[in-house]
Design a protein around this nucleic acid. Structure first.
Lengths: 109, 109
DNA sequence: ACTATTAATCGTAATATTGCAATAAAGTAA
DNA sequence: TTACTTTATTGCAATATTACGATTAATAGT
């Protein structure tokens, strides 16, 4: 079916899954790493840096923007993208709480 | 095409994406949370806890096991699953390095 | 107005993921 | 052995994701 039954999970579980899905493709990881490295970046630079076609990059940027992890600003004919630090921090806290669970009683089988 | 062109990305980018994909579905998030809460769990308990069919849970468990995030041990007719703390720690470090990048120069557009 | 540049959108093809019924496998107990 | 319990596997249908060519905006420069 390919359809995640979101209604049977908690809001937190769905939120974690949504954030994680954003990082679930190497192109989006590469885009975010590039934005961190350069602090800001126009879409065209990403097309050159990463080897994907312009519509593909544009689509990945749209998803990241929709999630709020990046911002985009029109500058003439090009569009400047950068990390949205407020939302990135929120996301980081949600993910960290999930990743930093107590491991002291793991490995029990 | 639905095919991630892994060869055009770095090993780290692909690794981050693979780990993130594991958390990219609320059912797998729920399974992992449950394993952390109870320290160990038989598959049947997860089927009851989460509202998905047994083959579906079994499939999600298989993916998590393949990635190394959980272990499974046969105990009679049932199978006990638990977190693999070594691999979880490795994954956590990879993800943390990605999430904890410098935000001081973000929001520039 | 015309042209060039850049990014977004549309349409579509290919592949991946999710979910489950049916079945198989593996163990336990009588 | 037979019946029972539990989990894995298979096969398949439905949906999601990824990628890109073609096209469409939107802006800038002439």
């Amino acid at each position: 079916m390919g359809l995640a039954k979101t209604e049977m999970f908690t809001d937190l579980q769905n939120e974690i899954a949504l954030f994680a899905k954003a990082f679930g493709h190497p192109a989006r990881v590469a885009i975010l790493q590039h934005l961190f490295k350069l602090n800001s970046c126009v879409c065209g630079d990403l097309v050159n840096e990463i080897g994907l076609a312009q519509p593909t990059i544009s689509q990945h940027l749209k998803e990241l923007k929709l999630l709020g992890l990046i911002k985009g600003n029109v500058e003439g004919t090009s569009v400047c993208y950068c990390i949205n630090s407020d939302n990135w921090t929120i996301m980081k806290e949600v993910m960290s709480r999930f990743l930093d669970q107590d491991l002291s009683k793991a490995d029990c089988c």
